[in-house]
């Protein structure tokens, strides 16, 4: 089962929820930190890393001896990454999505594949949890291939928890797509609600069941609950705005280690998710 933890707004507690949930379930869990622009789950879990694997994606390199300057490569590129000039062809690697269109369409076989390193993924373990995170290389902007690489290690016999990036753009879709459940973490503030709505719209398009964790309950207002009720989205857990939790977090510690009763709360959250997924499976 794949559970993707997403939010819309950043800083609502995705990592807090995904790491504490992972630790509560323990054995049989894979935790994928897919926020590859700023991975932070390792700061809380301290996994021992046993393998680092590069993520490579091809970019075009033009053989000007063979090129007839026909512009077919430039025309097929949706991202404007190629400029065919009269006697020269420029490649803008940062715009290239490595779709391979230019390699295929070139009638002169003048478009060669050049390797580009987008970043790395790290494999590790902690407390029986299988841990993988990704790191986007400095200067690179292409995030989804790294997330896809992490997710290629999904084990269907395990519980896969994905710590998604914030927002609703391509990296988030890459981290939510084909999940069995999306757990949206929000906070009861106007900002939290605004971005939650965007996230819910995205999840609806993907057609995946979702539920809410409301974090920092006690600040803001009741608008998130009203929205959840109106949209028929179950609120599966509430985490109070509690100084003790903030202190635990700020030290890089785990809530379930420091306040043991939270382990049951996270296991209860997991049970509710499993029930919702089974209900959805059953209705198919």
């Amino acid at each position: 089962m794949i559970i993707s933890v997403a939010s819309g707004k950043g800083g609502t507690g995705k990592t807090t929820v995904s790491t504490n949930l992972a630790l509560s379930i323990g054995q049989g869990v894979q935790l994928f930190d897919c926020d590859v622009e700023e991975p932070n789950a390792h700061l809380f879990l301290h996994p021992s890393i046993h393998k680092i694997e590069p993520v490579i994606a091809p970019v075009p390199k033009i053989d000007l001896e063979k090129c007839s300057f026909c512009k077919k490569c430039m025309d097929i590129c949706r991202f404007g990454a190629l400029a065919v000039l009269k006697k020269n062809v420029l490649v803008f690697e940062n715009l290239c999505h490595s779709c391979g269109g230019c390699f295929e369409i070139c009638p002169e076989h003048a478009v060669l594949e050049k390797e580009r390193s987008l970043g790395d993924i790290e494999h590790g373990t902690v407390n029986g949890i299988s841990f993988i995170d990704g790191r986007l290389a400095i200067g690179q902007v292409m995030v989804p291939p790294i997330i896809k690489k992490i997710r290629s290690y999904t084990d269907p016999n395990m519980i896969t928890l994905i710590d998604a990036p914030p927002g609703t753009s391509c990296p988030v879709i890459a981290a939510m797509n084909k999940a069995d459940f999306i757990l949206l973490v929000t906070e009861p503030t106007p900002f939290g609600l605004h971005d939650l709505k965007l996230a819910v719209e995205t999840v609806k398009i993907l057609g995946i069941p979702c539920g809410l964790v409301i974090n920092r309950v006690g600040i803001g207002n009741d608008a998130v609950n009203q929205y959840a009720k109106k949209e028929n989205i179950p609120v599966l857990m509430e985490i109070p705005f509690d100084k003790k939790i903030a202190q635990i977090y700020s030290r890089g510690e785990m809530i379930v280690d420091k306040i043991p009763e939270y382990k049951d709360k996270f296991l209860d959250l997991f049970k509710k998710i499993v029930a919702l997924v089974e209900k959805k499976e059953g209705s198919k």
Binding site: R78, G80, A81, A83
Partner: peptide
Amino acid sequence: NAFKGAGIQAAAMISDKDAEVLLTGFCGPN
């Protein structure tokens, strides 16, 4: 309305039309 690479494509186009000089307001790095 291009998602990205508008300047690159416009630059290739005016070169194709044999313009030697471009007069404009702002021109980005690509």
